[in-house]
Design a protein around this nucleic acid. Structure first.
Lengths: 114, 114
DNA sequence: CCTATGTTTAACGCATTCGTTAATTAACGA
DNA sequence: TCGTTAATTAACGAATGCGTTAAACATAGG
């Protein structure tokens, strides 16, 4: 994987387990064990996923006694979205075209039904 | 890599060469050779990148004689953004300002094009 | 100090990714 | 038909990703 920031962010998001972890953290901070609970994979595997998310800046971590709490940091998601914004105009216009197309189809169908 | 749709999309975006190809295609369709030109990598490597982008649905391809033209399909970017929208509420308050800024930019661009 | 609990690190295997060069396929055009 | 151009496929190697189990580390608390 390339080591530029956006690549690291997208690569971190390219795993469903990691996206699920982010979804869980959106509901509140959690320890490693809590985060691991819904998954059928080992604790070390979760630990690695957290490291990936941390390196992408998507989570921050704090220690309290032997527990390490993770919390969501959505800033990289904003960065990723900013990058995609360049294409928004593109997809909006495509949608307009698709929408118009669908409307024409509908009109045609209605005519055929009469 | 997991084979769910979002994972495939994010994985496709996790490579700077592929993102550069998308950026180029935003300016208009191009052949494989044209797309390869800015990069110091071989044509087969570009061909593979295009395959990855195609499988992610980010480009569509057409053939005319011996040239294969690629064109941007931004729909998967919309999907990725939709996924990220869930986290928008967590984003930096600066984001609202940025978003407003981007919207203004777009409106301005649209005006300029008329 | 010893043990239990939470988490990470080490060491390994397997699959995938990304690049290469060489060979192959496809289509045009003299 | 033959040579040229465009692109893909084949075959290979090095690096990375993701999982495992076993061992190590860190802290609380009797």
């Amino acid at each position: 994987m390339a080591d530029d920031r956006l690549s690291v962010i997208f690569a971190a998001l390219a795993d469903p387990t990691r996206r699920a972890i982010l979804a869980r953290l959106a509901e509140g901070d959690a320890t490693v064990t809590e985060l691991a609970e819904p998954f059928a994979i080992s604790l070390p595997a979760i630990s690695r996923h957290l490291k990936v998310l941390e390196q992408a800046g998507l989570i921050t971590r704090s220690r309290s006694a032997q527990w390490r709490s993770s919390s969501l940091n959505p800033e990289p998601l904003r960065e990723a979205t900013v990058w995609m914004e360049r294409y928004r105009q593109f997809w909006d216009t495509n949608f307009d075209r698709l929408d118009a197309h669908l409307k024409r189809m509908q009109t045609q169908t209605e005519r055929n039904e009469k």
